[in-house]
């Protein structure tokens, strides 16, 4: 796979988890152009915990989608773990998501007809793991997020916080280069939000790179770095 570290990248300093060079994402609405990202350059290093902030419509989700290889930039270069992924096709992007990325969403996005264990194991299924192996890993991950007693439950039998913990376990299944979270506490009360954030912090301390979009400054305070967006541009970086 093109993504495996080559001699060249090993020789250089460890590459950034993700690096944007003048990234643009322009939507064309009729005759009007919307610049959701208007030339963004930023580097997310390994082991960092970022919070992306900014007003509604400033381009936070767009940035996360491009970082997550769900969306392709209309201009600029995107290096993921040192590799240029800005011009890959749909199958290649799927492969990158499968092997190097983990997503956490505001609305949890678990598959309702699958059990907790099956939801966590889903990335492993696409990675082609054997059923016993993936079940074992799913159980380990469930234990890590404190849900070892809920393996057979359906998502709708769990509280919001528990569902989000399942989603985090699922995002960890493929041991991603970095995790992307779009308002992971947006649907949770403040107490539960605390729990989720402390879980993310624990993961970050254990070495995971995390990039999280949030509206709430007190949530953002937990991140080591804060990036402020405005009108598709970076308005400032803290930390």
């Amino acid at each position: 796979m093109a993504m495996l570290p080559t001699e060249q990248t090993k020789a250089a300093a460890t590459p950034a988890a993700a690096r944007f060079e003048n990234i643009r994402r322009t939507y064309i609405m009729g005759t009007q152009q919307v610049h959701a990202l208007d030339g963004v350059s930023v580097s997310f290093e390994k082991g960092e915990f970022w919070a992306i902030m900014g007003p509604s419509g400033s381009g936070k989700s767009t940035m996360l989608n491009v970082l997550g290889c769900l969306d392709r930039p209309t201009g600029g270069k995107y290096y993921l773990d040192g590799q240029d992924v800005s011009a890959l096709d749909d199958d290649e992007l799927s492969d990158i998501r499968l092997k190097y990325l983990g997503f956490i969403f505001q609305s949890f996005n678990l598959i309702p007809q699958l059990s907790v264990e099956e939801n966590i194991a889903l990335p492993l299924y696409y990675l082609g793991w054997k059923e016993e192996d993936s079940a074992k890993r799913a159980r380990e991950l469930a234990a890590m997020v404190g849900l070892e007693t809920r393996l057979r439950h359906r998502p709708n039998e769990l509280s919001g916080g528990q569902q989000q913990r399942v989603a985090i376990a699922r995002a960890l299944a493929n041991d991603p280069v970095f995790m992307l979270a779009d308002e992971p506490t947006g649907n949770l009360d403040s107490g539960t939000s605390e729990e989720i954030i402390s879980l993310l912090k624990r993961l970050n301390r254990a070495g995971k790179t995390i990039i999280m979009v949030t509206h709430e400054p007190e949530i953002a305070q937990n991140a080591g770095k804060r990036l402020y967006m405005r009108d598709g541009l970076i308005a400032g970086i803290e930390g």
Binding site: L70, S94, D95, R97, L98, N109, R170, N174
Partner: peptide, 11 residues
């Protein structure tokens, strides 16, 4: 379908 695609399922 969106979830599966985000996780890395190919078309």
């Amino acid at each position: 379908i969106g979830i599966r695609r985000a996780i890395g399922a190919k078309q």
